[in-house]
Design a binder for these strands. Structure first.
Lengths: 219, 219, 219, 219
DNA sequence: GATGAATGAGTCTTCATTCAT
DNA sequence: TATGAATGAAGACTCATTCAT
């Protein structure tokens, strides 16, 4: 653990607290995103961060604290990125598209952040799981509001429940597409966003306008 | 869910191997789905299964082996359930709908199975993650084939890459909707499947027919 | 830790649970009495007991649990020893003497037990400290009752508060004398008990009969 | 208790060494008496003292050094207090009484000091334990000398050994009574001292004059 | 075949102690 | 002088895994 890789963070001694904290959080996000909460060890995190474990604990508390801090930081980053991308005054479809574009942009640029957030969102257990579920719920509600707004503006009244289901589907589609995109990164974030818009927005438009798909008569 | 009514672990001694194995796997799926891979302990699994740990190891090998076996069994069940629901000769949309209906039906009836498969599919690390990713990849390819087939039959040539992305989105949408549905179980599996069809198939149809959504001129 | 002392408890494998438990408790009492609660380490205890730490935890729970169990066992032993020595029907002085004799007898035969009980009774902190304090309190009350009974039988009415203070003094005298005796073990338990009786009982008799000591006029 | 009103750790920089040291020792005594040696942490002590840890170490050395210094200071204080109370020329009983009165007076006014001395005196381990034991031994010898002197002056020759045992008992009685008194502080120090005198001195007088208590003939 | 008993290895966490500024 | 920053070493506790009966 010593002589084996003297290359990494030069064990730069005596950094100011804020810098060290960022350093540690970066390392923690990297390790958590690679291994998940349980499999990640404080030993490895401290090693990657280039500090000793006592510092890790002094700065960021227990493993759970550290993880929560990571998640909060990454979530904030992502929310800000999306918030920055959205144009509040525009039509719902444009807003959604901007949001998606910003989302894919963020995912493309912060793989590790996205993975910590997404991988752990599923993995139940721990107090953060709930927090992440809540966050996801808020995203779904936001999208649902956009859909609703769009439908309303076309004079159609859907039950909100319906809309939430659709929003959940859309969010899931976005997540899944994001993962897929990371493995097939041929397109730009904007292109992927467009793709999802085409799949979903058009279908939603059809729905709103009453063009629906029907299962075959005899099921 | 089937994990919850095994042969009632009466500590019945000297059961035939196959029965014992099923008993153990049922217990393991229950525990894994409740706690996730890492947090689940062999102690708890053996206790829930009503056997001693040495037997657990004798029958199903290491924890990783056991988990892999669980996943394979549940995946097979799910694949079979979907395969049984699909009607090969039908039109692509009907096939897709049947598949979705079968999928939601399975999820509704086998919560634990679904959770082991889905929750852990993300949580990377371990060798099984790859297996699950592969499985998911196959599902995506299958859906992509359906989409392709449908497009072809309408005389349109899309790059397969495009179609795979859409398929990934669709699969993700299905997963997400499934999770959402488990928390809001007001509708039947068929209804949820219809919902997703409406969202996606119509949009796909538009796409195929050239009605596309365009981002606003100045991005 | 392996090759360094292959002599101790022959690592006798596969002992029945009850035996192991006693073995462990004996070791724990030895270590706790030598080092005190905090300085004792579970590592050392398990080593002295000739088992691995997991067994230690499996059998006796956490360090606090283990310590509590030790204390309870030793306290029970001591209480039983004293209870066996006392003759309920006799005169108060005889009862007290019997009790003291039994007490010193126990201390002489179970040095470690006595040290765990006494050393830790003072050392505050932990939940057991309270328990031990209570136990000591009961001993004091018991002695106070004897004194009271004796005084009553001589027709003298003292405030109970007074008597409790005397009893506390007597108990402390006993403890201190016990420690001193362990370092100067020339006499028998009975002789030491007699010594304490002589010091205390006679004085108490004087007190009861009104022969009191007065501080010099001008303090 | 003096530990509770130090120069109010205003983080006043550049204090003369002696003042700083007193400040630190006050804090250390407070913490040690509250938590015991092991549970006390240098972090907490330095915080209570209002200085940084490096200063703590610079001024008073290791934790053990610090503890030893605490004990020595408190012991010295107590010895001085008792020495000041005693009147060398007086009769043995008066001397003893003065000593006891001074002792209880000290305990009443310096709870923390007394607790560090007494609580830790038992908890063996560490080099200070020996020191404390020695100190206690000196107290016992002192008392023994007084008893002896008194006996001599009445023309009775007891083995010193005997007297030392009695002295040990007396000292223990004093300690125990002190603890009890701290929990039932209804009387003045002088009154408690009188109480102990009455219990012990009278008994000792009887002893000296040959009135002894005899165990019952049989058993 | 079945299990109570056993453990090596590892995890999180803290503490006394010391540089480098 | 005074301290924020840093760490080696250890301690409590758990888990996957395997004998010996």
């Amino acid at each position: 653990m010593h002589a084996e890789e003297p290359i990494r963070p030069v064990r730069a001694k005596r950094l100011p607290r804020a810098v060290r904290e960022r350093q540690i959080l970066d390392a923690a996000v990297a390790v958590f995103s690679r291994l998940g909460f349980h499999a990640a060890s404080m030993d490895e995190i401290s090693e990657v961060a280039g500090i000793s474990k006592p510092m890790l604990y002094a700065y960021l508390g227990s493993k759970e604290d550290l993880f929560a801090t990571c998640i909060r930081r990454e979530a904030t980053l992502m929310i800000e990125a999306i918030g920055d991308g959205v144009r509040p005054g525009e039509a719902p479809d444009v807003q959604l598209w901007c949001g998606l574009r910003a989302f894919f942009g963020f995912v493309g640029e912060h793989r590790a952040s996205w993975q910590v957030l997404h991988r752990q969102a599923s993995s139940q257990g721990g107090p953060f799981a709930q927090e992440l579920a809540d966050m996801r719920g808020r995203a779904i509600s936001l999208v649902a509001a956009l859909l609703m707004h769009s439908a309303d503006s076309q004079g159609v009244g859907h039950a909100s429940r319906d809309t939430e289901g659709l929003a959940a589907a859309l969010v899931g589609a976005g997540e899944s597409l994001a993962d897929w995109w990371l493995d097939h990164p041929e397109e730009s974030a904007a292109a992927v966003a467009s793709r999802l818009m085409n799949l979903v927005w058009m279908g939603f438009g059809d729905l709103v306008e009453g063009r629906v798909w029907h299962p075959p008569a005899k099921g």
